[in-house]
Design a protein around this nucleic acid. Sequence first.
RNA 1: GGGCCGUUAGCUCAGUCGGUAGAGCAGCUGGCUUUUAACCAGUUGGUCGGAGGUUCAAAUCCUCCACGGCCCA
Length: 496
Amino acid sequence: MTEENDENEQIALRRQKLAELRQQGNPFPNDFRRNVVAGELHAEYGGRDPAEIETRNVRVKVAGRMMTRRVMGKASFAHLQDMSARIQVYVTRDAVGEKAYEDFKKWDIGDIVGAEGTLFKTKTGELSIKVDEARLLAKSLRPLPEKYHGLTDTETKYRQRYLDLIMSEVARNTFRTRTAIVRAIRRFLDERGFLEVETPMMQVIPGGAAARPFVTHHHALDMSLFLRVAPELYLKRLIVGGFEKVYEINRNFRNEGLSTRHNPEFTMLEFYQAYADYHDLMNLTEEMLRGLARSVLGTETIMYQGDQYDFSKPFRRLTLREAVLHFNPDIREADLDSLDALRRIAARLQVPVKDMYGAGKLQLEIFEKTVESKLKDPTFITSYPTEVSPLARRNDKDPGVTDRFELFVGGREIANGFSELNDAEDQAERFRKQVAEKETGDEEAMHFDEDYVRALEHGMPPTAGEGIGIDRLVMLFTDSPSIRDVLLFPHMRPEK
RNA sequence: GGGCCGUUAGCUCAGUCGGUAGAGCAGCUGGCUUUUAACCAGUUGGUCGGAGGUUCAAAUCCUCCACGGCCCA
Protein backbone atom coordinates (compact mmCIF):
# COMPACT_ATOMS: atom_id res chain seq x y z
CA MET A 1 0.00 0.00 0.00
CA THR A 2 1.21 3.49 -0.78
CA GLU A 3 0.12 6.70 0.81
CA GLU A 4 -1.85 7.73 -2.24
CA ASN A 5 -4.00 4.67 -2.75
CA ASP A 6 -4.92 3.54 0.73
CA GLU A 7 -6.78 6.71 1.59
CA ASN A 8 -10.53 6.45 1.61
CA GLU A 9 -13.32 8.83 2.34
CA GLN A 10 -13.38 7.94 6.04
CA ILE A 11 -9.73 8.86 6.39
CA ALA A 12 -10.24 11.99 4.32
CA LEU A 13 -13.07 13.08 6.59
CA ARG A 14 -10.98 12.52 9.70
CA ARG A 15 -8.12 14.51 8.19
CA GLN A 16 -10.58 17.32 7.58
CA LYS A 17 -11.73 17.16 11.22
CA LEU A 18 -8.10 17.31 12.29
CA ALA A 19 -7.49 20.33 10.07
CA GLU A 20 -10.41 22.09 11.78
CA LEU A 21 -8.98 21.21 15.18
CA ARG A 22 -5.66 22.74 14.17
CA GLN A 23 -7.47 26.06 13.62
CA GLN A 24 -8.42 26.04 17.31
CA GLY A 25 -4.94 25.29 18.70
CA ASN A 26 -2.67 22.29 19.02
CA PRO A 27 -4.88 19.24 18.59
CA PHE A 28 -2.27 17.02 20.28
CA PRO A 29 -2.15 18.46 23.81
CA ASN A 30 0.06 16.83 26.41
CA ASP A 31 -1.14 18.49 29.58
CA PHE A 32 -3.95 16.13 30.58
CA ARG A 33 -3.06 13.97 33.58
CA ARG A 34 -5.19 11.01 34.59
CA ASN A 35 -5.28 10.01 38.23
CA VAL A 36 -6.49 6.43 37.88
CA VAL A 37 -6.75 3.60 35.33
CA ALA A 38 -9.89 1.68 34.50
CA GLY A 39 -8.76 -1.57 36.09
CA GLU A 40 -8.21 0.12 39.44
CA LEU A 41 -11.72 1.54 39.33
CA HIS A 42 -13.27 -1.85 38.58
CA ALA A 43 -11.24 -3.46 41.34
CA GLU A 44 -12.14 -0.81 43.90
CA TYR A 45 -15.76 -0.06 42.98
CA GLY A 46 -16.94 -2.87 40.72
CA GLY A 47 -18.44 -4.83 43.59
CA ARG A 48 -19.93 -1.90 45.47
CA ASP A 49 -23.52 -0.84 45.80
CA PRO A 50 -24.68 1.86 43.34
CA ALA A 51 -26.12 3.99 46.12
CA GLU A 52 -22.87 3.79 48.06
CA ILE A 53 -20.86 4.86 45.03
CA GLU A 54 -23.09 7.88 44.42
CA THR A 55 -22.97 8.92 48.07
CA ARG A 56 -19.20 8.86 48.05
CA ASN A 57 -19.12 11.29 45.09
CA VAL A 58 -15.88 9.83 43.65
CA ARG A 59 -14.12 12.23 41.26
CA VAL A 60 -11.85 10.56 38.68
CA LYS A 61 -9.76 11.51 35.66
CA VAL A 62 -9.24 8.78 33.07
CA ALA A 63 -7.81 8.62 29.58
CA GLY A 64 -7.79 6.07 26.80
CA ARG A 65 -8.86 5.10 23.33
CA MET A 66 -12.57 5.46 22.55
CA MET A 67 -13.60 1.94 21.51
CA THR A 68 -17.40 2.23 21.37
CA ARG A 69 -19.84 5.11 21.15
CA ARG A 70 -23.61 5.24 21.41
CA VAL A 71 -25.15 8.65 20.85
CA MET A 72 -28.75 8.99 22.01
CA GLY A 73 -29.62 12.56 21.24
CA LYS A 74 -28.47 14.75 24.09
CA ALA A 75 -26.75 11.91 25.98
CA SER A 76 -24.10 9.42 24.91
CA PHE A 77 -22.25 6.41 26.21
CA ALA A 78 -18.73 5.46 25.17
CA HIS A 79 -16.04 3.07 26.36
CA LEU A 80 -12.50 4.26 26.95
CA GLN A 81 -9.82 1.57 26.83
CA ASP A 82 -6.56 2.06 28.67
CA MET A 83 -3.66 -0.26 29.48
CA SER A 84 -5.65 -1.98 32.22
CA ALA A 85 -9.26 -2.27 31.04
CA ARG A 86 -12.23 -0.41 29.61
CA ILE A 87 -14.43 2.00 31.50
CA GLN A 88 -17.75 3.37 30.30
CA VAL A 89 -18.25 7.13 30.21
CA TYR A 90 -21.61 8.89 30.15
CA VAL A 91 -21.50 12.23 28.37
CA THR A 92 -24.52 14.52 28.37
CA ARG A 93 -25.16 17.96 26.94
CA ASP A 94 -26.35 19.19 30.30
CA ALA A 95 -23.20 18.06 32.11
CA VAL A 96 -20.52 19.19 29.64
CA GLY A 97 -22.30 22.10 27.97
CA GLU A 98 -23.69 22.56 24.48
CA LYS A 99 -20.43 23.42 22.69
CA ALA A 100 -18.44 20.60 24.28
CA TYR A 101 -21.17 18.12 23.54
CA GLU A 102 -21.28 19.13 19.87
CA ASP A 103 -17.50 18.68 19.74
CA PHE A 104 -17.75 15.29 21.40
CA LYS A 105 -20.22 14.09 18.78
CA LYS A 106 -17.61 14.82 16.09
CA TRP A 107 -15.01 12.57 17.73
CA ASP A 108 -14.43 9.18 16.19
CA ILE A 109 -14.02 5.67 17.49
CA GLY A 110 -10.29 5.21 17.93
CA ASP A 111 -9.65 8.76 19.16
CA ILE A 112 -7.60 9.18 22.33
CA VAL A 113 -9.74 10.94 24.92
CA GLY A 114 -9.36 12.27 28.44
CA ALA A 115 -12.40 12.51 30.70
CA GLU A 116 -13.13 13.82 34.16
CA GLY A 117 -16.25 13.17 36.19
CA THR A 118 -18.01 11.26 38.92
CA LEU A 119 -18.37 7.51 39.33
CA PHE A 120 -21.80 5.89 39.16
CA LYS A 121 -23.45 2.66 38.15
CA THR A 122 -25.95 2.45 35.33
CA LYS A 123 -29.27 0.73 35.77
CA THR A 124 -27.73 -2.44 34.28
CA GLY A 125 -25.03 -2.23 36.96
CA GLU A 126 -22.06 -1.17 34.84
CA LEU A 127 -19.53 1.02 36.60
CA SER A 128 -19.34 4.28 34.62
CA ILE A 129 -18.19 7.87 34.80
CA LYS A 130 -20.65 10.76 34.55
CA VAL A 131 -18.44 13.13 32.62
CA ASP A 132 -18.42 16.87 33.12
CA GLU A 133 -15.24 17.56 31.20
CA ALA A 134 -13.89 15.69 28.18
CA ARG A 135 -10.94 16.45 25.92
CA LEU A 136 -9.67 15.05 22.69
CA LEU A 137 -6.00 14.21 23.31
CA ALA A 138 -5.04 12.66 19.96
CA LYS A 139 -6.97 12.27 16.74
CA SER A 140 -7.11 8.86 15.08
CA LEU A 141 -7.14 9.18 11.32
CA ARG A 142 -7.84 5.56 10.45
CA PRO A 143 -10.95 3.53 11.22
CA LEU A 144 -10.51 0.55 13.53
CA PRO A 145 -11.48 -3.00 12.55
CA GLU A 146 -15.04 -4.10 13.07
CA LYS A 147 -16.11 -3.96 16.71
CA TYR A 148 -17.73 -7.39 16.94
CA HIS A 149 -15.46 -9.73 14.97
CA GLY A 150 -12.34 -7.70 15.63
CA LEU A 151 -9.26 -8.26 13.49
CA THR A 152 -9.18 -11.81 12.14
CA ASP A 153 -6.82 -11.50 9.19
CA THR A 154 -3.64 -13.22 10.42
CA GLU A 155 -1.41 -11.27 8.08
CA THR A 156 -2.65 -7.93 9.40
CA LYS A 157 -2.47 -9.16 12.99
CA TYR A 158 1.24 -9.84 12.51
CA ARG A 159 2.13 -6.89 10.29
CA GLN A 160 0.17 -4.31 12.25
CA ARG A 161 0.45 -5.72 15.74
CA TYR A 162 -0.72 -2.41 17.21
CA LEU A 163 -4.14 -3.06 15.68
CA ASP A 164 -4.20 -6.59 17.06
CA LEU A 165 -3.32 -5.27 20.50
CA ILE A 166 -5.99 -2.58 20.35
CA MET A 167 -8.63 -5.08 19.30
CA SER A 168 -7.82 -8.36 21.02
CA GLU A 169 -7.76 -9.04 24.74
CA VAL A 170 -6.47 -12.54 23.90
CA ALA A 171 -3.47 -11.06 22.12
CA ARG A 172 -2.81 -8.61 24.94
CA ASN A 173 -2.92 -11.44 27.46
CA THR A 174 -0.59 -13.62 25.41
CA PHE A 175 2.12 -10.98 25.61
CA ARG A 176 1.43 -10.24 29.26
CA THR A 177 1.84 -13.96 29.94
CA ARG A 178 5.07 -13.96 27.99
CA THR A 179 6.46 -11.25 30.23
CA ALA A 180 5.16 -13.04 33.33
CA ILE A 181 6.97 -16.22 32.28
CA VAL A 182 10.28 -14.45 31.70
CA ARG A 183 9.93 -12.61 34.99
CA ALA A 184 9.17 -15.85 36.86
CA ILE A 185 12.17 -17.59 35.30
CA ARG A 186 14.44 -14.73 36.37
CA ARG A 187 13.07 -14.90 39.90
CA PHE A 188 13.50 -18.69 39.98
CA LEU A 189 17.14 -18.51 38.92
CA ASP A 190 18.00 -15.40 40.95
CA GLU A 191 16.63 -17.06 44.09
CA ARG A 192 18.98 -19.99 43.48
CA GLY A 193 22.06 -17.82 43.20
CA PHE A 194 22.41 -17.65 39.41
CA LEU A 195 24.00 -14.50 37.98
CA GLU A 196 22.33 -12.99 34.93
CA VAL A 197 24.86 -11.94 32.31
CA GLU A 198 25.03 -10.62 28.75
CA THR A 199 27.41 -12.11 26.21
CA PRO A 200 28.13 -11.13 22.59
CA MET A 201 25.38 -11.26 20.00
CA MET A 202 27.98 -10.52 17.29
CA GLN A 203 30.62 -13.20 17.25
CA VAL A 204 33.81 -13.73 15.29
CA ILE A 205 33.29 -17.50 15.47
CA PRO A 206 29.66 -18.56 15.68
CA GLY A 207 29.43 -21.44 18.12
CA GLY A 208 27.30 -23.33 20.57
CA ALA A 209 24.80 -24.93 18.20
CA ALA A 210 24.58 -26.73 14.89
CA ALA A 211 22.93 -24.01 12.86
CA ARG A 212 23.56 -21.77 9.91
CA PRO A 213 24.40 -18.23 11.06
CA PHE A 214 23.61 -14.79 9.65
CA VAL A 215 26.71 -12.96 8.49
CA THR A 216 27.30 -9.23 8.69
CA HIS A 217 30.27 -7.00 8.11
CA HIS A 218 32.14 -4.66 10.39
CA HIS A 219 33.38 -1.76 8.27
CA ALA A 220 36.01 -0.23 10.58
CA LEU A 221 37.58 -3.61 11.23
CA ASP A 222 36.83 -4.79 7.69
CA MET A 223 35.83 -8.25 8.83
CA SER A 224 32.90 -10.60 8.87
CA LEU A 225 30.90 -10.99 12.05
CA PHE A 226 28.28 -13.60 12.76
CA LEU A 227 25.06 -13.08 14.67
CA ARG A 228 25.14 -15.66 17.37
CA VAL A 229 23.29 -18.96 17.05
CA ALA A 230 23.80 -19.59 20.78
CA PRO A 231 25.60 -18.00 23.75
CA GLU A 232 26.87 -21.36 25.02
CA LEU A 233 30.63 -21.06 24.53
CA TYR A 234 30.74 -17.61 26.15
CA LEU A 235 28.69 -18.69 29.14
CA LYS A 236 31.04 -21.62 29.72
CA ARG A 237 34.02 -19.25 29.55
CA LEU A 238 32.36 -17.51 32.50
CA ILE A 239 32.20 -20.82 34.35
CA VAL A 240 35.96 -21.12 33.77
CA GLY A 241 36.24 -17.58 35.10
CA GLY A 242 34.64 -18.63 38.34
CA PHE A 243 31.05 -17.44 37.93
CA GLU A 244 29.77 -20.87 38.84
CA LYS A 245 26.07 -20.25 38.18
CA VAL A 246 25.19 -18.01 35.25
CA TYR A 247 22.27 -17.48 32.92
CA GLU A 248 21.32 -15.36 29.96
CA ILE A 249 17.90 -14.70 28.44
CA ASN A 250 18.38 -13.19 25.03
CA ARG A 251 17.97 -13.44 21.29
CA ASN A 252 19.58 -16.05 19.05
CA PHE A 253 19.64 -15.83 15.26
CA ARG A 254 19.51 -18.78 12.90
CA ASN A 255 19.56 -18.49 9.15
CA GLU A 256 17.00 -21.19 8.45
CA GLY A 257 13.47 -21.62 7.20
CA LEU A 258 10.38 -20.11 8.79
CA SER A 259 7.57 -22.20 10.20
CA THR A 260 5.00 -22.24 12.97
CA ARG A 261 7.91 -23.19 15.26
CA HIS A 262 10.80 -21.19 13.75
CA ASN A 263 11.51 -17.48 13.52
CA PRO A 264 14.94 -16.21 12.36
CA GLU A 265 15.40 -14.51 15.72
CA PHE A 266 14.10 -16.18 18.82
CA THR A 267 14.61 -16.00 22.56
CA MET A 268 16.55 -18.53 24.51
CA LEU A 269 17.29 -19.06 28.17
CA GLU A 270 20.67 -20.68 28.74
CA PHE A 271 21.95 -21.45 32.21
CA TYR A 272 25.04 -23.20 33.55
CA GLN A 273 25.75 -24.61 36.97
CA ALA A 274 29.14 -25.87 38.15
CA TYR A 275 29.33 -29.01 40.27
CA ALA A 276 26.09 -30.34 38.81
CA ASP A 277 25.25 -32.94 36.17
CA TYR A 278 22.44 -33.45 33.72
CA HIS A 279 20.33 -35.30 36.27
CA ASP A 280 20.44 -32.24 38.51
CA LEU A 281 19.26 -30.09 35.60
CA MET A 282 16.40 -32.43 34.69
CA ASN A 283 15.24 -32.14 38.29
CA LEU A 284 15.67 -28.37 38.23
CA THR A 285 13.76 -28.14 34.93
CA GLU A 286 10.82 -30.09 36.33
CA GLU A 287 10.74 -27.85 39.35
CA MET A 288 10.99 -24.71 37.23
CA LEU A 289 8.24 -25.66 34.78
CA ARG A 290 5.93 -26.89 37.50
CA GLY A 291 6.45 -23.66 39.41
CA LEU A 292 5.92 -21.59 36.26
CA ALA A 293 2.64 -23.31 35.55
CA ARG A 294 1.49 -22.72 39.09
CA SER A 295 2.57 -19.08 39.33
CA VAL A 296 1.71 -17.96 35.80
CA LEU A 297 -1.36 -20.07 35.01
CA GLY A 298 -2.50 -21.00 38.49
CA THR A 299 -2.65 -24.69 37.60
CA GLU A 300 -0.24 -27.53 36.93
CA THR A 301 -2.42 -28.85 34.13
CA ILE A 302 -1.72 -27.17 30.82
CA MET A 303 -4.28 -27.15 28.03
CA TYR A 304 -2.69 -26.93 24.61
CA GLN A 305 -4.60 -27.16 21.33
CA GLY A 306 -7.21 -29.46 22.84
CA ASP A 307 -4.71 -31.69 24.67
CA GLN A 308 -4.01 -31.71 28.37
CA TYR A 309 -0.55 -31.97 29.89
CA ASP A 310 -0.04 -32.72 33.56
CA PHE A 311 3.03 -30.96 34.94
CA SER A 312 2.41 -32.16 38.50
CA LYS A 313 3.60 -35.73 37.83
CA PRO A 314 7.32 -36.56 37.48
CA PHE A 315 8.29 -36.22 33.82
CA ARG A 316 8.89 -39.46 31.97
CA ARG A 317 12.55 -40.24 31.25
CA LEU A 318 13.84 -42.64 28.63
CA THR A 319 16.91 -42.94 26.51
CA LEU A 320 16.91 -42.14 22.83
CA ARG A 321 17.44 -45.84 22.03
CA GLU A 322 14.55 -46.87 24.27
CA ALA A 323 12.32 -44.26 22.67
CA VAL A 324 13.16 -45.36 19.12
CA LEU A 325 12.52 -49.02 19.98
CA HIS A 326 9.31 -48.19 21.85
CA PHE A 327 7.75 -46.28 18.97
CA ASN A 328 9.11 -48.58 16.25
CA PRO A 329 8.15 -52.18 17.17
CA ASP A 330 9.65 -53.37 13.89
CA ILE A 331 13.14 -52.14 14.77
CA ARG A 332 15.32 -54.62 16.70
CA GLU A 333 17.84 -53.43 19.22
CA ALA A 334 20.72 -54.86 17.19
CA ASP A 335 19.63 -52.71 14.22
CA LEU A 336 20.61 -49.60 16.17
CA ASP A 337 24.26 -50.65 16.13
CA SER A 338 24.38 -51.66 12.47
CA LEU A 339 25.12 -48.97 9.91
CA ASP A 340 23.55 -51.10 7.17
CA ALA A 341 20.35 -51.69 9.14
CA LEU A 342 20.11 -48.02 10.11
CA ARG A 343 20.57 -46.94 6.49
CA ARG A 344 17.83 -49.36 5.38
CA ILE A 345 15.47 -48.02 8.02
CA ALA A 346 16.24 -44.42 7.09
CA ALA A 347 15.63 -45.21 3.42
CA ARG A 348 12.30 -46.83 4.26
CA LEU A 349 11.33 -43.74 6.28
CA GLN A 350 12.43 -41.54 3.36
CA VAL A 351 14.87 -39.67 5.58
CA PRO A 352 17.54 -37.99 3.45
CA VAL A 353 20.90 -39.44 4.44
CA LYS A 354 24.51 -38.60 3.63
CA ASP A 355 27.28 -41.20 3.32
CA MET A 356 29.25 -39.58 6.11
CA TYR A 357 26.44 -40.12 8.65
CA GLY A 358 27.49 -42.51 11.41
CA ALA A 359 25.19 -44.68 13.50
CA GLY A 360 24.56 -41.87 15.99
CA LYS A 361 23.43 -39.38 13.38
CA LEU A 362 21.21 -42.02 11.76
CA GLN A 363 19.67 -42.89 15.12
CA LEU A 364 18.90 -39.22 15.71
CA GLU A 365 17.33 -38.85 12.25
CA ILE A 366 15.14 -41.89 12.87
CA PHE A 367 14.21 -40.56 16.30
CA GLU A 368 13.21 -37.17 14.90
CA LYS A 369 11.15 -38.73 12.15
CA THR A 370 9.30 -41.37 14.17
CA VAL A 371 9.29 -40.34 17.83
CA GLU A 372 9.51 -36.61 18.40
CA SER A 373 5.97 -35.64 17.43
CA LYS A 374 4.55 -38.42 19.60
CA LEU A 375 6.12 -37.21 22.84
CA LYS A 376 3.05 -35.38 24.09
CA ASP A 377 3.33 -35.54 27.87
CA PRO A 378 6.48 -33.93 29.28
CA THR A 379 9.28 -36.39 28.48
CA PHE A 380 13.04 -36.27 28.89
CA ILE A 381 14.94 -38.14 26.22
CA THR A 382 18.48 -38.92 27.36
CA SER A 383 21.73 -40.47 26.09
CA TYR A 384 22.13 -38.67 22.78
CA PRO A 385 24.86 -40.05 20.53
CA THR A 386 28.25 -38.41 20.98
CA GLU A 387 28.42 -37.94 17.21
CA VAL A 388 25.59 -35.37 17.35
CA SER A 389 26.57 -33.78 20.67
CA PRO A 390 29.97 -32.13 20.15
CA LEU A 391 29.85 -30.05 23.33
CA ALA A 392 28.49 -32.66 25.73
CA ARG A 393 30.32 -34.92 28.17
CA ARG A 394 30.67 -38.59 27.23
CA ASN A 395 28.89 -41.12 29.39
CA ASP A 396 31.29 -42.93 31.71
CA LYS A 397 29.94 -46.38 30.84
CA ASP A 398 29.23 -45.83 27.15
CA PRO A 399 31.46 -43.22 25.43
CA GLY A 400 29.29 -43.53 22.31
CA VAL A 401 26.58 -41.49 24.01
CA THR A 402 26.64 -38.31 26.07
CA ASP A 403 25.12 -37.28 29.39
CA ARG A 404 22.57 -35.22 27.58
CA PHE A 405 18.80 -34.79 27.52
CA GLU A 406 16.14 -32.97 25.57
CA LEU A 407 12.71 -32.20 26.96
CA PHE A 408 9.65 -32.64 24.76
CA VAL A 409 6.12 -31.43 25.45
CA GLY A 410 3.28 -31.61 22.98
CA GLY A 411 5.57 -33.23 20.43
CA ARG A 412 7.96 -30.29 20.44
CA GLU A 413 11.46 -29.79 21.74
CA ILE A 414 11.37 -27.34 24.64
CA ALA A 415 14.79 -27.76 26.25
CA ASN A 416 18.23 -29.24 25.61
CA GLY A 417 20.76 -29.79 28.34
CA PHE A 418 23.81 -31.81 29.25
CA SER A 419 26.74 -32.38 31.49
CA GLU A 420 29.37 -30.20 29.87
CA LEU A 421 32.44 -31.51 28.13
CA ASN A 422 35.27 -30.03 30.21
CA ASP A 423 38.08 -32.17 28.79
CA ALA A 424 39.95 -29.71 26.57
CA GLU A 425 41.64 -32.41 24.51
CA ASP A 426 38.39 -34.25 23.84
CA GLN A 427 36.78 -30.92 22.94
CA ALA A 428 39.55 -30.13 20.45
CA GLU A 429 39.09 -33.53 18.87
CA ARG A 430 35.30 -33.01 18.58
CA PHE A 431 35.83 -29.59 16.97
CA ARG A 432 38.17 -31.20 14.43
CA LYS A 433 35.40 -33.65 13.49
CA GLN A 434 32.97 -30.76 13.09
CA VAL A 435 35.39 -28.92 10.84
CA ALA A 436 35.77 -32.05 8.73
CA GLU A 437 31.98 -32.18 8.34
CA LYS A 438 31.87 -28.50 7.46
CA GLU A 439 34.42 -29.19 4.72
CA THR A 440 32.14 -31.80 3.21
CA GLY A 441 29.45 -29.14 2.87
CA ASP A 442 27.51 -29.30 6.13
CA GLU A 443 26.69 -25.63 6.72
CA GLU A 444 25.40 -26.38 10.21
CA ALA A 445 28.62 -27.95 11.43
CA MET A 446 30.61 -26.03 14.03
CA HIS A 447 33.79 -23.99 13.69
CA PHE A 448 36.94 -24.73 15.65
CA ASP A 449 37.04 -22.21 18.49
CA GLU A 450 40.66 -22.08 19.67
CA ASP A 451 40.07 -19.62 22.45
CA TYR A 452 37.28 -21.77 23.83
CA VAL A 453 39.63 -24.76 23.92
CA ARG A 454 42.27 -22.55 25.56
CA ALA A 455 39.69 -21.59 28.21
CA LEU A 456 38.97 -25.27 28.86
CA GLU A 457 42.70 -25.88 29.14
CA HIS A 458 42.71 -23.59 32.16
CA GLY A 459 40.29 -26.04 33.77
CA MET A 460 36.51 -25.88 33.87
CA PRO A 461 34.83 -27.38 36.90
CA PRO A 462 32.41 -30.22 36.26
CA THR A 463 29.33 -28.39 35.00
CA ALA A 464 25.89 -28.91 33.54
CA GLY A 465 24.13 -26.50 31.21
CA GLU A 466 20.80 -26.15 29.51
CA GLY A 467 18.91 -24.10 26.98
CA ILE A 468 15.16 -23.53 27.03
CA GLY A 469 13.34 -22.03 24.05
CA ILE A 470 11.29 -19.24 25.54
CA ASP A 471 9.03 -18.77 22.51
CA ARG A 472 7.99 -22.41 22.42
CA LEU A 473 7.44 -22.38 26.16
CA VAL A 474 5.20 -19.33 25.79
CA MET A 475 3.31 -21.03 22.96
CA LEU A 476 2.61 -23.91 25.29
CA PHE A 477 1.52 -21.70 28.17
CA THR A 478 -0.70 -19.47 26.03
CA ASP A 479 -2.23 -22.19 23.85
CA SER A 480 -0.76 -20.50 20.75
CA PRO A 481 -0.49 -22.64 17.60
CA SER A 482 2.23 -20.53 15.94
CA ILE A 483 5.44 -18.92 17.14
CA ARG A 484 4.21 -15.78 15.40
CA ASP A 485 1.43 -15.55 17.96
CA VAL A 486 3.98 -15.12 20.76
CA LEU A 487 6.35 -12.71 18.98
CA LEU A 488 5.19 -9.09 19.06
CA PHE A 489 6.72 -8.44 15.65
CA PRO A 490 7.34 -11.76 13.88
CA HIS A 491 9.45 -11.79 10.76
CA MET A 492 7.38 -11.18 7.60
CA ARG A 493 8.29 -10.73 3.98
CA PRO A 494 7.95 -7.13 2.83
CA GLU A 495 4.41 -6.30 1.74
CA LYS A 496 5.36 -5.04 -1.70
C1' G B 1 11.79 -26.33 -2.30
C1' G B 2 6.73 -29.20 -3.11
C1' G B 3 1.24 -29.71 -2.35
C1' C B 4 -3.44 -27.64 -0.88
C1' C B 5 -6.32 -23.29 0.55
C1' G B 6 -7.03 -18.03 0.71
C1' U B 7 -6.72 -12.57 -1.15
C1' U B 8 -13.95 -8.88 -3.03
C1' A B 9 -15.85 -1.69 0.51
C1' G B 10 -11.93 0.83 6.29
C1' C B 11 -13.30 -4.20 9.00
C1' U B 12 -16.08 -9.17 8.99
C1' C B 13 -17.90 -11.87 5.06
C1' A B 14 -21.54 -13.53 0.76
C1' G B 15 -21.29 -13.67 -4.56
C1' U B 16 -25.45 -19.36 -8.08
C1' C B 17 -24.11 -21.96 -14.63
C1' G B 18 -19.27 -16.86 -17.11
C1' G B 19 -24.25 -12.22 -18.08
C1' U B 20 -25.41 -4.71 -14.42
C1' A B 21 -20.61 -6.30 -7.54
C1' G B 22 -23.95 -7.45 -2.30
C1' A B 23 -24.87 -7.70 3.28
C1' G B 24 -23.58 -6.50 8.39
C1' C B 25 -20.42 -3.27 11.12
C1' A B 26 -17.92 1.40 10.52
C1' G B 27 -18.91 6.26 7.99
C1' C B 28 -22.42 10.32 6.46
C1' U B 29 -27.67 12.94 7.21
C1' G B 30 -31.88 13.17 10.49
C1' G B 31 -34.38 11.42 15.22
C1' C B 32 -33.61 9.78 20.24
C1' U B 33 -31.06 12.08 28.07
C1' U B 34 -29.30 4.96 31.35
C1' U B 35 -27.10 2.67 26.31
C1' U B 36 -23.81 -1.47 25.72
C1' A B 37 -23.07 -5.88 18.82
C1' A B 38 -28.00 0.54 21.35
C1' C B 39 -32.28 1.56 18.32
C1' C B 40 -35.34 3.91 13.99
C1' A B 41 -35.30 6.23 8.89
C1' G B 42 -32.35 7.56 4.80
C1' U B 43 -27.50 7.28 2.44
C1' U B 44 -22.01 7.39 0.54
C1' G B 45 -18.25 4.02 -0.39
C1' G B 46 -15.22 -1.05 -5.15
C1' U B 47 -8.52 -0.99 -9.95
C1' C B 48 -12.83 -7.90 -6.95
C1' G B 49 -4.17 -8.90 -4.69
C1' G B 50 -1.11 -7.84 -9.61
C1' A B 51 -0.05 -8.98 -14.88
C1' G B 52 -1.33 -11.65 -19.09
C1' G B 53 -4.80 -15.04 -21.73
C1' U B 54 -9.69 -17.47 -23.34
C1' U B 55 -14.59 -15.28 -24.45
C1' C B 56 -19.57 -11.26 -27.47
C1' A B 57 -18.97 -10.96 -22.03
C1' A B 58 -14.43 -12.69 -16.41
C1' A B 59 -14.77 -11.45 -9.20
C1' U B 60 -16.04 -16.27 -11.56
C1' C B 61 -12.27 -20.24 -16.44
C1' C B 62 -6.61 -20.73 -17.73
C1' U B 63 -1.21 -19.16 -17.00
C1' C B 64 2.41 -16.54 -14.36
C1' C B 65 3.67 -13.45 -10.16
C1' A B 66 3.11 -11.35 -4.99
C1' C B 67 1.59 -11.93 0.02
C1' G B 68 -0.60 -14.99 3.82
C1' G B 69 -2.33 -19.76 6.09
C1' C B 70 -1.97 -25.13 6.69
C1' C B 71 0.69 -29.62 5.56
C1' C B 72 5.15 -32.01 3.74
C1' A B 73 10.66 -31.95 2.89
